[in-house]
Design a protein around this nucleic acid. Structure first.
Lengths: 343, 343
DNA sequence: TAGGTTTGTGCAATCGATTACATAATTACA
DNA sequence: TGTAATTATGTAATCGATTGCACAAACCTA
């Protein structure tokens, strides 16, 4: 009853061979119109569904692509995945999701099981950079399985990547704060082993330098990307002498925490203190005191990542393409950094 | 160079047959310890990776599970998927993501391609209810492919589902508004063909009834789940005579829009007007005027959906299990519906 | 030492679809 | 009418792993 009909069943029904059925179904020009029609009709009648597994085994293409992210329940990653899925579905690919939870072992496991599953490519945002990881990732490259990094990448020969210009994002956000009149801008950064945070930090420093403002290392805190971390950072920042009058946070969540803490302490935003976040999380624009933030165009990033993969998989040359796409960050300037400047 | 080593390669290297290699790798007790060790060592040396496609074709199990959602970039669905992935990964399953974008044709397409790909099960939140869809979904059941609905389900024999008690959620939220002293509570609902909205609506009406408050059809609007829809609804609600003094919205986004519009019109929340949302989106607790909302425990829903699938797939009896899991909604009462009651 | 077990491997089919090559049937053309 | 060209289909191998059955060797047991 839940028997699946195969081309053999169709063949038997029509007293022909499976080869003919296969050819008819694949529009092979060598098949007569009569037979083709007969096969198609019978296939429909018998409710035939192609078995992709068999096809994949034969062709060596699974039509599956693995996507590895730290977690899926973050607006950013979910949006990237949406972009990837929308771009790959029309091309006949299925998207397999793997989460690492920022755990190195899981990342290694995921890569390994994806390779076992014969995925046609791996699109990933790395969680961790370590020797062992390097080894496994290099393995993917050696196996000639297209690998594309997005957002959180890793410097590797022969690996394409799609990122945003984090340095520019950090630069522009900081510049905005400076233009608003902030003189002592603090920075909340993240795990420095990840390029994204390092680059945002560099952008921040470059902006200070370009504007002739001093760089004060005491104003830079490495925090987790959550609300509490932002609150705690403010707690410590306000105890400094002099305290800062602005924050560029690499995380919207930390920026929110900072704002909450500042408000509780009676600091007026943006009049006395400006805040700029990063990530353009939905809540940043929903707040009554909306939060300025750098948009990473995750949807576009996902689409682009998928496109780079498609280019790579359809590339028949023996020369490997190494493509580095860098998207431009976009500033969303909102109330948290908008003083009414009259000058 | 990117040649993949197969069990035949290992067999050749050791001058034995592939059958023996396969058995050794699968810890078949009929293999001598000497051979087993030799095979394992050689496999490691040759960097052998099992080809899951071949294995799947033979066994008829792909170890892939398809998850169909309207969209992935929503906090709710992303969290459910997180739960599903975390529960299924340890069991050796991969999760394939499909989005329908609420488009019926795409839903049909997705189901179809997932079946072609020989997934071991389909977990879905339906986008649409139509004749054609019924047909395709029934097809899944007939093929004996485990099918589980989550959140947005459909009444179908033999299909398990995991939902929350939406009626109870609507009831409790409305009750809360009543307890706060609201006398004329409006309701923003969604597509009535979806059970979830219908049930929340029913819960709302039941709460009114139980409390002896009149039900006024003019106070019920069907809206899209976005901010603008909430604003427009308030625009119309306030023109009624008498206008309502509270809103229970089936969507957090509409609730947010409603609040924004009310504030702009100078209506004080929660003093003059209370609002209760549904979904417990992250922003609801981040707002300065935090929004009361019904939590759907999406993570738990995802986990439970995966568990029900596992039970079903591991069930060897011929009797089909039809399991209906209903999770309890949890109220998160926040400022938007918290008057300081002294009585 | 003959006959019966046990143990470890090999043989070959199977899962379902595809395709190079072979071949039969038909048509074309001189 | 005979031969070449064309057309449509069949044969069988292949993708990689698994497994029922067969079988040889070694080990027991009376």
């Amino acid at each position: 009853m839940d028997q699946k009909t195969t081309i053999y069943d169709i063949a038997k029904a029509l007293d022909i061979t499976a080869a003919t059925v296969s050819r008819a179904l694949n529009n092979n020009p060598k098949i007569s119109e009569v037979t083709r029609k007969l096969v198609l009709e019978t296939a429909a009648k018998m409710n035939y569904k192609q078995n992709r597994l068999a096809q994949s085994l034969r062709s060596g293409k699974s039509n599956n692509v693995g996507v590895i992210v730290p977690r899926i329940d973050s607006n950013f990653f979910a949006s990237v995945i949406r972009g990837i899925e929308e771009e790959l579905r029309p091309e006949g690919y299925h998207v397999i999701i793997c989460q690492t939870n920022e755990d190195e072992m899981r990342q290694i496991e995921n890569i390994s099981t994806l390779l076992n599953a014969q995925v046609d490519g791996i699109l990933m945002s790395i969680s961790n950079v370590s020797e062992e990881n390097d080894h496994v990732i290099q393995n993917v490259v050696d196996k000639n399985v297209p690998l594309i990094f997005f957002d959180r990448k890793k410097k590797m020969d022969g690996v394409s990547s799609v990122t945003i210009n984090d340095l520019e994002g950090g630069y522009l956000a900081t510049k905005n704060l400076i233009e608003q009149g902030c003189k002592r801008i603090a920075h909340l950064t993240g795990d420095q082993s990840l390029e994204i945070y390092d680059n945002r930090n560099k952008g921040y420093q470059k902006a200070l330098l370009d504007s002739g403002l001093p760089f004060n290392p005491d104003y830079v805190f490495q925090v987790k990307s959550n609300v509490d971390a932002g609150r705690q950072a403010v707690d410590r920042l306000l105890s400094l002498n002099p305290p800062p009058d602005g924050i560029f946070s690499s995380s919207d969540f930390a920026a929110l925490g900072a704002i909450q803490e500042l408000k509780e302490r009676g600091v007026r935003i943006p009049e006395e203190f400006c805040v700029f976040g990063f990530g353009n999380e939905p809540f940043t624009r929903f707040m009554e005191l909306s939060i300025s933030s750098v948009d990473q165009s995750p949807l576009e990033m996902g689409r682009m990542t998928a496109k780079v993969f498609l280019e790579q998989i359809n590339n028949t040359d023996k020369i490997k393409i190494e493509k580095k796409v860098v998207l431009n960050p976009e500033l969303h300037i909102r109330k948290s950094s908008s003083r009414n400047l009259s000058s």
